[in-house]
């Protein structure tokens, strides 16, 4: 043991930490310069299938032509929500089907009534949106829709978006 101690004392090595410190500072500078904390973003998860053609419930020929099933053809049970923008792209008017809706709160209460009725199993919900509507205004309507619960207990997350033709703003 004593011989070992003697050897160590004679060959004492001093590490030059300056070079290591230089490198560590370079790494630190890199991390400080590239550090940009991303804001915490939320998201609204949706299933957006392309809209199926809407069939009129009065089209009795099409509806009765298939005698092999009692189910209604797809597209008959479609809930359409129409959103009209003004010149600035703000939300100007709303409608469910043919009926106008005065505000987002009214839309929410109407949707609640519709979806609480189990006899209204909609195949699809279509948002008909005016071309110039701003994204943040659209998201206000989408938020109202996604707050609804379907009769099966699942939240409404399946929507289809359709652009209103020219002339409807």
């Amino acid at each position: 043991m004593s011989r070992l101690r003697k050897k160590r004392a004679h060959g004492d090595v001093e590490l030059n930490l300056a070079a290591m410190l230089d490198m560590a500072f370079q790494l630190l500078t890199f991390f400080i310069l590239t550090f940009k904390p991303a804001p915490v973003e939320g998201q609204v998860n949706l299933r957006l299938p392309p809209p199926a053609p809407i069939q009129s419930a009065n089209a009795t020929k099409d509806l009765g032509s298939d005698t092999s099933t009692n189910e209604l053809p797809k597209g008959v049970k479609t809930l359409t929500i129409t959103i009209f923008p003004n010149e600035r792209g703000d939300l100007a008017a709303l409608g469910i089907g043919e009926a106008p809706v005065s505000s987002l709160a009214a839309l929410e209460s109407k949707l609640k009534t519709i979806f609480s009725d189990p006899s209204n199993p909609f195949d699809q919900v279509i948002l008909q949106v005016g071309k110039s509507l701003r994204y943040d205004e659209l998201m206000r309507v989408v938020e109202v829709c996604t707050r609804q619960t379907l009769p099966d207990g699942h939240p409404l997350s399946k929507l289809s978006l359709v652009e209103l033709p020219d002339g409807s703003k």
Binding site: P39, E41, G42, Q43, V44, N45, L46, R47, L48, P49, P50, M139, V142
Partner: peptide, 13 residues
């Protein structure tokens, strides 16, 4: 949609 994507996440604050 034309390329087969159906699941979307719309980012918002």
């Amino acid at each position: 949609q034309q390329n087969g994507f159906r699941n979307f996440a719309l980012k918002a604050m």
